[in-house]
Each structure stands twice: as structure tokens, then as C-alpha cells.
């Protein structure tokens, strides 16, 4: 064998050999599927929502009942049977769940994060973290059931005029549900704060309390903030707990009035479940209205996720 042949045999280009090509294309296809999912989601939601609105329905060749964008976005009555599609009646309820749950989850979640990252001993942390994970793993339908069976009756002994279905207990369970999310993302941000900053604080004579609140929290503020936004977007998209606990009557309520939390209302997700649960088949305005709500929901959560990403990236302190 000559030296050339030997070199040829030893330095065979393998980049495009069949096994390489086959495996690489498989892996690429898998990664591309995630893009295809997004495209599918966007095309489907915009397509069906376009059939719903009167300005775009002729463009996609749909005749029949439609709703105007103005009516959809500014109307305050949601009654599918009488053709009233005012999504504000649903959005305000969603907003109420968001506000109510954030009152519970944001302080408790940040408190948990500070405790886990600054105070807890490693042993305690190894117990608490799986506990929180389990909290996050309990199905949402179970949370909804807890709200209606245990929490509402318990609240009724304090607030006599609380109905069986009410926004208060729905908000409370959604709040408990998103605590682990706030806690784990915030804790990641706090653990990323370098030890030198803490030591510098102690060197200046600060107490642990001062170091936690004066150094660690400000330094990880961007992470905490992005955890808030992600958790709120989770609260908006939460479905089963609010479907079971909040009721099935779309009602326009003032989300900033504490009194309205004792009433039943229907958040966006609950309305979607109710509409599909009824007998609607492909086509028809009721079917399309589900996609219109879904489109609104998708856009809101997408915008929130993007804002959270931007916050985390832009205001991240580089250490």
C-alpha cells in the first residue's frame, strides 16, 4: 500500500457519509418541527379568526354571520346565542384572575426565592425544592376541584354573600399554582448573583437582612421581574381551575373593585372550554369565536413572554 492510499484510507471525509447524513437530517427535522408547530398555530389561529371578523371574512371567502372588530374589542356582553361577541366581558375576568393570583403569588414567590437562595440550609432546601416541584406537578383540574369543594365553603364563613362560583377562590388557587414558577425562576436569578457582592456587603457591616434586601434582590431584579411576567402569562392561560371554580356566566366586572371578586364570571379560557363542550362542529360562528378568543389569548401570552425575555436580556447584570 502506498503512502497516498494509506492517507486516503485514514482521512476519509465522513461529513457526508450516509450515517452522518441520515442522523443529521433526522435531528434537523426534529428541530424544524418546533418551527412548524408555531407556523401551524399562527396560520390556524389567524385563518379561523379571519373568518370570524366581518372585515376579513370576505377576503377568505366566508359568508355568513360575522362580528366586527370594534364590537369584539369594545363590546362588554358575551352571549353567543344572541350573537353578542364582546370579548371585554371575558378579558376583564381574566384580568381579575391575573390580579387576584398575583397578589398571592408574587410576594410569596419572591419570599420563597429569597429564603431558598439566602437562608435555607442545604438540607432544608433539598426537602423544600422537591416539595415545590410536586406543588407545580398537581393537575390543574385538582386545583379547581379544591377551590369549589374546600376553599369556597371555607371562605363563605367569612364572606356570607359569596356564591358557589366566584372569582375569589379561583384567583386563590391559581395564585397557589403559580407560586413555584415565580419562586424557581427568581431563585435562579438570585443564585446567579456572585458571592463577592454578598461578601462586600458583609464587609461593609451589613446584616444578612440588609444583604438580602439591599444587594441580592436589586441585583436580581430583572430575573424577578421576568418571573412575574411569565407567571402572570401562565395565570392568564390557566384553564381548568377557572373553568370549574369561576362559573360559566360571562359578565363584565370592574377588576379594580374588590367587591366584584365575590361574583361569578367567565375568563377567556373557561369560555373556550364551554363553547367547545357544547355542540359546535366545524364551521359556524360559535366555532370561529373560539378561535378568535384563542387568537387573543395567544397574542397576549406571546407578547408577555417576549417582554419577559426582553426584560431578562436587557436589564441583566453581567458579572
Amino acid at each position: 500500500m502506498s503512502a497516498d492510499d494509506l492517507e486516503e484510507a485514514l482521512t476519509r471525509r465522513t461529513q457526508n457519509a450516509p450515517p452522518e447524513l441520515l442522523s443529521r437530517s433526522f435531528f434537523f427535522a426534529c428541530a424544524a418541527l418546533s418551527i412548524a408547530t408555531t407556523i401551524g398555530l399562527v396560520v390556524l389561529l389567524t385563518g379561523e379568526a379571519a373568518k370570524f371578523f366581518s372585515f376579513s371574512a370576505p377576503l377568505v371567502g366566508v359568508t355568513g354571520e360575522t362580528a366586527t372588530v370594534v364590537e369584539f374589542l369594545t363590546g362588554t356582553t358575551w352571549e353567543v346565542t344572541s350573537g353578542k361577541f364582546g370579548v371585554l366581558a371575558l378579558v376583564t375576568s381574566t384580568l381579575m384572575v391575573m390580579i387576584g393570583s398575583s397578589i398571592i403569588a408574587l410576594p410569596l414567590g419572591v419570599g420563597t426565592a429569597i429564603y431558598l437562595s439566602e437562608y435555607a440550609s442545604p438540607r432544608l432546601r433539598s426537602l423544600l425544592k422537591p416539595g415545590l416541584e410536586i406543588l407545580a406537578g398537581i393537575p390543574t383540574v385538582v386545583y379547581g376541584f379544591f377551590a369549589i369543594i374546600y376553599i369556597t365553603p371555607a371562605l363563605q364563613s367569612f364572606i356570607p354573600d359569596l356564591g358557589t362560583f366566584n372569582m375569589l377562590s379561583a384567583s386563590i388557587v391559581v395564585g397557589i399554582m403559580i407560586i413555584p414558577m415565580v419562586a424557581s425562576i427568581s431563585e435562579d436569578a438570585m443564585s446567579a448573583v456572585p458571592e463577592e457582592l454578598r461578601q462586600a456587603g458583609y464587609g461593609m457591616g451589613a446584616t444578612k437582612f440588609e444583604v438580602s434586601t439591599g444587594i441580592v434582590v436589586p441585583a436580581s431584579l430583572s430575573g424577578i421581574f421576568s418571573s412575574f411576567i411569565l407567571a402572570l402569562s401562565r395565570a392568564i392561560g390557566e384553564t381548568m381551575a377557572v373553568t370549574i371554580a369561576a362559573g360559566s356566566q360571562a359578565k363584565f366586572l370592574n377588576p379594580f373593585n374588590p367587591g366584584s371578586y365575590t361574583e361569578a364570571a367567565q375568563p377567556m379560557t373557561a369560555a373556550m372550554v364551554e363553547l367547545v363542550g357544547g355542540d359546535i362542529t366545524g364551521g359556524g360562528i360559535a366555532y370561529r369565536s373560539v378561535f378568535a378568543i384563542g387568537f387573543t389569548l395567544f397574542v397576549i401570552t406571546l407578547v408577555m413572554n417576549i417582554i419577559s425575555d426582553l426584560v431578562a436580556q436587557h436589564y441583566r447584570e453581567e458579572y
Partner: peptide
């Protein structure tokens, strides 16, 4: 793909249901 995956993780489950239905 990176951005897309993190956004997909944040899409509410009910919207995935719509995807399946549609």
C-alpha cells in the same frame, strides 16, 4: 428555534387544544 421553543413553552395548553382541534 431557540426563541421559538421558549415561546412555545409559554403557550397556554388550551391553545394547543385548539391546534389539535383545528
Amino acid at each position: 428555534v431557540d426563541v421559538n421553543i421558549s415561546n412555545l413553552a409559554g403557550v397556554p395548553s388550551v391553545v394547543y387544544g385548539l391546534l389539535g382541534l383545528g
